[in-house]
Design a protein around this nucleic acid. Structure first.
Lengths: 198, 198
DNA sequence: GTCGTTACGATGCACTTGCATTGCAAAGAC
DNA sequence: GTCTTTGCAATGCAAGTGCATCGTAACGAC
């Protein structure tokens, strides 16, 4: 067994270049040559690790979802559930350059999902995972008394996430201020914390 | 002045083909040849009316926004303001084939806006127009006593629209049921009608 | 009728694209 | 050392792309 290289590491490097390009030029901008150049590797390498362009794009989608989940888990580790919920929701709004890239890429894959069932499946999983996480945080927060009972946790989580994505999309396009979006989301969470619904 | 043809009509025919293709294969799927074939015209015609591919795509974006606005205005003509508001937010959810196409195309242009400032400008206008329309309906409904006072009309309209787009995106991807999305939106409107906020 | 203008249709071209192929070099296994 | 397997790099190629160009047919003004 010759030439022991870390395949996953190589793939991550290449996928990182894909994200950069997608955020700048959309998925149509993803070409084998362009990705290779952006990653600073040869086209042969890209081909070696991703036999096909579609596979490259799909892997980029998978890794971005996994990365976002991992990042969120790490960031909120020491925070109380309500704050972790807030963090989860804030992720959908392009504030920092990192989030902006993430939201742009996220949006691109959303559009791509209309003609790629695999992407659609990945996003569906991501959506469900997000709602599950959000609902769990709601339950946790209620157990601590930080959030009043009421609305179904999953429905509440879904509502907050959908709202956040709607605001986030507008911020990305430029028709809404990021600060205004965050403020609106915070109001929504605080209101859920202050008064029971339904 | 020879050969009197209706330019706008010709453009609409071609743009219709663009929408169809975008909904099926995304904006990357838009090629001059493909559009010509879908519209049942020659490639020369497409080139004649839209000098460049970019112009074609942008015009398709403009016409879709205008068409949506006109359609909404026509549909709700005889309805009370609250119902017109309901219609406005329901538009973002892919229920009928027509709305599904619309939401798919809308999503595609949203993604495209990251690298095309003109598209971004068109969408920004559309966003603002939507909020203005929604806010006006809120004001109108309040004047009739159908909606209680409270939240700023524009903020309420923005919240409803963002929420609708968030739900709509999930329905498009397939992670959410259209009926569930509509129900959630109706609950939101009814709640705004039942209890003042903030 | 003719003349000029417009609305195309047809074709050609330079370029980019994804992917197949080929060759080779590095690193264990022996 | 040899051998074998893997990890690439280089190149080639057919297909598809946007766009320029050229020809021409239709129609109105005169």
């Amino acid at each position: 067994m010759p030439r022991d290289v870390d395949h996953d590491q190589r793939r991550r490097e290449i996928v990182g270049a894909v994200w950069t390009i997608v955020a700048r030029q959309g998925i149509e901008g993803v070409t084998l040559r362009g990705v290779a150049a952006e990653a600073g590797v040869s086209m042969g390498r890209v081909q070696h690790y991703f036999g096909t362009r579609d596979e490259l794009v799909r892997h980029a989608c998978r890794l971005m979802v996994e990365g976002a989940q991992a990042e969120h888990a790490a960031q909120g580790q020491a925070l109380p559930p309500v704050e972790r919920l807030r963090l989860l929701v804030h992720r959908a709004v392009p504030t920092t350059p990192g989030f902006t890239l993430g939201v742009a890429v996220w949006t691109a894959f959303h559009a791509k999902s209309v003609d790629d069932p695999e992407i659609s499946a990945i996003l569906t999983d991501a959506h469900r995972g997000g709602v599950r996480e959000g609902a769990a945080l709601v339950v946790e927060a209620r157990a601590r008394g930080d959030l009043p009972d009421g609305e179904d946790p999953a429905a509440l989580a879904l509502r907050l996430l959908a709202l956040a994505e709607g605001y986030g999309a507008r911020v990305l396009v430029g028709s809404l201020d990021a600060a205004a979006a965050l403020a609106a989301l915070d109001r929504e969470i605080d209101r859920a914390a202050a008064a029971p619904r339904d």
